[in-house]
Write a protein that binds this DNA or RNA. Structure first.
Lengths: 341, 341
DNA sequence: GTGCAATTTGCAAACGTTTGCAAGTTTGCT
DNA sequence: AGCAAACTTGCAAACGTTTGCAAATTGCAC
């Protein structure tokens, strides 16, 4: 408590202050605090003690400027043109949580930015060129596939979460959405469903792939698969789904929802309409968010390994920062059978 | 496209490079790019054009060091001692989303850090003292109330989300949890419930206040209110709640869950046990997360204004950074009546 | 043309670290 | 003792900006 109180006449702010106090040069203090082996154990201990006593921390801004390395990874979330689309999208937020953990573990800090590409052509470059971050993770491709390709040509340390396309140039990590779609459709068909509907907006590449996979299976089994465009915006989603379900309840016996959240909404609406699940309507979701276990009946869904994906993105990014060239990673999703299909 | 391609032999990296190109001094370039009025319109335009052409952005690290201002706000999420407690806690994540929006709007960047105070005594100071952030927002008090008080004495630009206690020294924004608890209990009692249980861990100050409020009402109406300690960890929560509900189903006719997520779990388990809601058991949650609308029956709950809270925190923090002294803000929650009570 | 104010610019000193190099010190060995 | 090798330390130059001050330029009125 000695010198730490607010009335301290001369707080120790810089490494030079501390050096004077310890009777050594700033350079030595720097080395001591950095834990380098070049400094005598006794002086190091003295300096460390002094630093602790005065609550001194070297200024990161200066350090990072000098070392030309920020120790910060930018995480940028492009929001679709539907303004507040994913304000609280559980999936992205969960991914973000895991990213934070993975980055912390590797000693990096995380700088978060949410942007609306539609309203700002130049959404990625200012972040990249700011000199504030060593690399960037883009969470979701939104409708910016081409722009990402372009940026990737000139900026190496970038990893994107999203859908992989043959021959693309930006490094991406994501699930095999097509496979996921197949698994979902297979499960529905296996349960006896013959007329299926895909609930979701196929403008997003991920969703389009899920639909394509399901379509392939449906065709193979001679089942029908229609597209029911629904938006993932949290507010208003309920009423949209309600209308959709009223129309759909009679026409289909199997639902493949692009997202657990959508599946959840469908489930709720169907129940209100008195339609039995899974007997009258089988449902498969996508993501396997924690809530999927909580519904009744619990949601049958396609599991994405979010934590694993986050770890993979971080690892890839660090390798890229180190100068390596990395391939994209496509992770296989898994069918999780519960009560709705 | 002229000089921007990768093969550019001498990229324009520093303000000095650009200065040479423009035939002026670095100082002038700096002033021009900063939009100061001290520079001739013609030279400014020339410099701006050049900057655009070469895709030049001044290095933020250097700028911030020099100006002693980072333009970054730290957001730190203390995780309870139950390690992965809120890995994907929807409430905190939603709050985070709104914080990101509010900060962006004010021209600040957001630096995210998640810490486990239990395993690291010194979780807040390194962030504060790093010189990387102009201020910090702490999302949730966890069990660190005293530590926050201590830090607040020496560090002004800090705002905390959490529970307000009479005479506390750190600036806090949060809901009137006690009032929320009262509203919940009142609703339960009004529906005819006589033996109530609070589901949640009262070690967290927020939850304790919710319990206290409910207790007060229960006492006033001569109803019973027991405490059912349950943890909010996402994994394992389901089984814990399952056990709890098996024991509770017979003994109570009203449940006040500390969180919508808990309420959801209870609802699911009770349904499995064949207990009718709300007829056999009335339930009130807390938060009013989007999912609360999706359950069947939809969840009656206590609504917190998350977006408003986020905006308030940011505004308060900026005022504090500017040197003002600010009072805490306690926001009144609202009862949202739906199907479970 | 001269004088004086108003504009524009350049100069150079910060901001607080890190680090290559060289000087200084200790240690170990003959 | 003497000398080389190993270990510690100090010095000073970066990192890329911003900004107070002074110098240079311009404009304007006399």
């Amino acid at each position: 408590m000695a010198d730490r109180n607010a009335s301290d006449p001369r707080p120790v702010r810089t490494i030079t202050d501390l050096a004077k106090l310890a009777g050594v040069s700033p350079g030595t203090v720097s080395r001591a605090l950095a834990g380098k082996s070049l400094v005598n154990t006794k002086t190091r201990e003295k300096i460390e003690a002094l630093a602790r006593e005065h609550g001194f921390r070297p200024n990161q801004m200066a350090s990072r400027l000098r070392r030309q390395k920020t120790g910060v990874i930018g995480v940028i979330i492009p929001l679709g043109h539907e303004q507040k689309q994913q304000v609280s999208d559980t999936f992205f937020m969960t991914l973000l949580g895991h990213l934070a953990d993975a980055l912390t573990e590797k000693g990096y800090d995380l700088m978060l930015r949410r942007v609306v590409p539609a309203s700002d052509e130049d959404w990625l470059d200012p972040f990249i060129g700011s000199g504030m971050i060593d690399g960037v993770i883009v969470v979701g491709q939104s409708d910016q596939f081409d722009h990402l390709e372009e940026v990737a040509d000139g900026y190496r340390p970038m990893v994107v979460w999203g859908q992989h396309r043959e021959g693309q140039r930006h490094c991406v990590v994501g699930s095999d959405n097509r496979l996921g779609g197949k698994l979902a459709a297979e499960r529905l068909v296996a349960g006896g469903a013959k007329t299926l509907a895909f609930v979701g907006d196929t403008n997003a590449p991920e969703f389009a792939a899920r639909f394509a996979g399901a379509k392939q299976v449906a065709d193979a089994y001679g089942a029908r698969l229609d597209e029911l465009p629904a938006h993932v915006a949290t507010s208003g989603m309920t009423t949209e789904i309600a209308a959709l379900m009223r129309r759909a309840a009679g026409s289909y016996d199997g639902l493949f929802a692009a997202t657990d959240l959508l599946a959840l909404a469908c489930l709720g609406e169907l129940r209100k309409l008195g339609r039995a699940v899974p007997e009258g309507m089988r449902i498969v979701g996508f993501d396997d968010l924690p809530i999927a276990q909580q519904t009744t009946p619990a949601l049958t869904t396609i599991r994405q390994d979010i934590a694993g994906g986050a770890r993979a993105m971080v690892e890839l990014l660090l390798r890229r920062i180190a100068g390596e060239n990395t391939e994209s990673i496509v992770m296989p999703p898994k069918l999780v059978v519960r009560g709705t299909a």
